[in-house]
Design a protein around this nucleic acid. Structure first.
Ligand code: MN
Ligand code: MN
Ligand code: ZN
Ligand code: ZN
Lengths: 158, 158
DNA sequence: ATTGAACTGAGACTCAGTCTCAATGTAAGA
DNA sequence: TCTTACATTGAGACTGAGTCTCAGTTCAAT
């Protein structure tokens, strides 16, 4: 809860454009995603909005994706994650822990983004490809999992 | 067919390390992936190796992933793709057509890769994250789909 | 040749995600 | 307010990519 009112206004407008309503279930999904600050699995959503049936959650996610409010994120395991679309939050990338599956949002500097976008445009053009967007994920070990690994090693040695 | 003999030697060694054999079914999967030059869906593999049962193809893909010969690629649709691991081919990225699903391999310049890797290391470190690898995908429209779109527009206008 | 372990195809199975349907909510006009 | 057309909902059936089981086969090593 406690989300900037302009978010709900924006989402409502996007839904209205396709003759859909901003109902409490949809609002619950949006709030959960907005408050999490990182992409959520369907499991996460179920825990954060326990009253919301799973079939409804999935349906809302589909509807919200279709009107550009939600984006599906392919992580490094077998489950998709969901987050608010970049034009609602901001363009960003992901750190993905290959050990526990956690996904962290990161925002590179505008300078880096600009350089990369330019480079990718060239790369695309020279392949007859029209670049629209890009995804950049860093794979590795999160702070928590690094701790765990160190502790385990120490335990064995000591 | 017609694949550098060192590839098969390498794969065989990796399998042997975990007491597994480089059988004809596994070889068929490796050759199909090596000759394609871009990530293949299970459907593609089925078409390129029609004698290979689907359950075996999936099993071989799992085995080959476990010994580091194959990598699974999340595209922008609902189906995974499979390709040879980067230490067998080379580190590279993907152009993904959001219209037809095609995935194209691209290799950025070493200079760009170095700059990006450095930057991502910093970004990771400042989030307590240990960077190991990265994925960079460009989303857009492939040459074929661009043609199709232009043709359709012209048709409507004329 | 014997033997143990890896491999195989067929098909049953799992389960994330989708669809159906009957019931309910809701905005807009009479 | 009443009507009405349509969007929404929960429950649960369904789909299908991917996994597992099992009985039979192949391999490599002795
Ligand atoms: Mn970016
Ligand atoms: Mn790279
Ligand atoms: Zn972790
Ligand atoms: Zn295309």
């Amino acid at each position: 809860m406690m989300v900037d009112e302009t978010l709900h206004g924006l989402v409502e407008r996007r839904l209205r454009e396709v003759s859909q309503r901003y109902t409490s279930g949809r609002k619950a999904v949006v709030e959960v995603l907005a408050n999490a600050g990182h992409p959520l699995s369907i499991e996460d959503i179920g825990e954060l909005a326990p009253r919301l049936p799973r079939s409804s959650a999935y349906r809302h996610l589909v509807d919200l994706q279709q009107c550009g409010v939600v984006r599906r994120v392919a992580a490094n395991d077998d489950y998709y994650r969901f987050e608010l679309a970049e034009d609602i939050t901001e363009h960003h990338h992901h750190l993905m822990c290959t050990l526990c599956g956690k996904v962290i949002d990161v925002t590179p500097t505008p300078a880096f983004e600009r350089a990369m976008a330019n480079y990718l445009d060239d790369l695309s053009t020279s392949n007859g490809f029209a670049s629209i967007d890009h995804r950049l994920d860093v794979l590795g070990a999160c702070a928590t999992c690094r701790q765990r690994k160190l502790a385990a090693t120490a335990g064995c040695a000591g």
